[in-house]
């Protein structure tokens, strides 16, 4: 089977240079029907990544810049009085798109944040008693500035759990930076991208991801990981059952992207930093460092 993911990854890698692993994770997150949180300083290509993915997947793309004065209605939409009909009419907000880039989400107040996050969780919004379904697929990429920057409202832990993965992009390496500096404008490149995976095949793939086999041996390993996080004294709290499910879904997607029909421990290990890093409220902010004890101590066999 020719992996339909491969050309997509190739195209993305041509736009965002030197970030193969992060792109892979982002796509994995998407295939696992989860939302993505990118945490990094401004300017490392968060927006570009989101934009590229939207373009390659042929999704409606909307960027919402979160500011300190953004209101929930600015995201969800509001009922506005229509003088002709003499009635209130709902004007959908930017959230009614297939791919949302919620930029600098921690600049906004918790109120606005929770409006977005509730929508993410329930795949629908309720305004004045009426429920509106969000489009499908629905995929949110939120970006967040590092918490120590001034004027930010870091997402509370309970909200972080709603993101399947949190990744860090980091600075490009020297070669990639050189190519970036010498090459074409990224914006133009993105404009010229063609859709590699339209929504319908994407749905198919998401369904196939669900059928990836998980053996009981692997579940043992996963459970050992989860138990470990609950017992390890450096983690103030362990992984929740929802986190466990997220980990499993992400591992399945990862296995699928590797053209495998069964999940291996390596798949779990590959997605673990991104999936578990932000859920284990550890002193260390670096996801890889947070999960290092797990990878080191939980026996695979």
């Amino acid at each position: 089977m020719q992996n339909p993911i491969a050309p997509l990854l190739d195209s993305a890698n041509r736009i965002i240079l030197g970030k193969q692993h992060q792109i892979r994770l982002a796509l994995c997150c998407l295939l696992a029907r989860g939302h993505l949180l990118i945490e990094d300083i401004p300017g490392v290509g968060k927006t570009t990544l989101a934009h590229t993915l939207a373009k390659l997947l042929g999704l409606n793309y909307q960027r919402i810049q979160f500011t300190s004065d953004i209101l929930p209605s600015d995201i969800i939409g509001a009922s506005i009085f229509d003088p002709e009909d003499r009635s209130f009419k709902f004007h959908p907000g930017p959230i009614f798109n297939q791919m949302i880039l919620a930029d600098e989400i921690n600049r906004s107040t918790p109120k606005a944040q929770s409006a977005l996050l509730e929508a993410m969780e329930e795949q629908q919004v309720t305004v004045e008693g009426k429920t509106y379904r969000l489009p499908s697929p629905f995929f949110v990429i939120a970006t967040q500035n590092p918490a120590h920057q001034i004027g930010t409202f870091p997402l509370p832990e309970s909200q972080l759990d709603r993101f399947l993965m949190r990744i860090e992009l980091g600075y490009p390496d020297r070669n990639a930076e050189r190519e970036l500096l010498s090459g074409q404008s990224r914006y133009h490149l993105i404009e010229n991208l063609k859709t590699e995976l339209p929504p319908e095949p994407l749905k198919n793939i998401q369904q196939q991801v669900n059928t990836v086999h998980v053996s009981s041996a692997l579940l043992d390993y996963m459970q050992n990981i989860i138990t470990f996080t609950r017992e390890f004294p450096d983690y103030p709290c362990g992984l929740s059952p929802r986190a466990g499910l997220s980990l499993l879904n992400a591992a399945k997607a990862w296995a699928f992207m590797d053209s495998r029909d069964a999940v291996l421990p390596e798949d779990v290990q590959a997605v673990l930093p991104a999936v578990a890093g932000h859920r284990l409220r550890s002193a260390s902010q670096d996801s890889a460092a947070v999960v290092a004890p797990i990878l080191e101590r939980v026996n695979v066999l």
Binding site: S68, D69, L71, T109, K111, A112
Partner: peptide, 9 residues
Amino acid sequence: KGTDDFYGL
């Protein structure tokens, strides 16, 4: 102070 920037409810 702080009556200028509306911020939320």
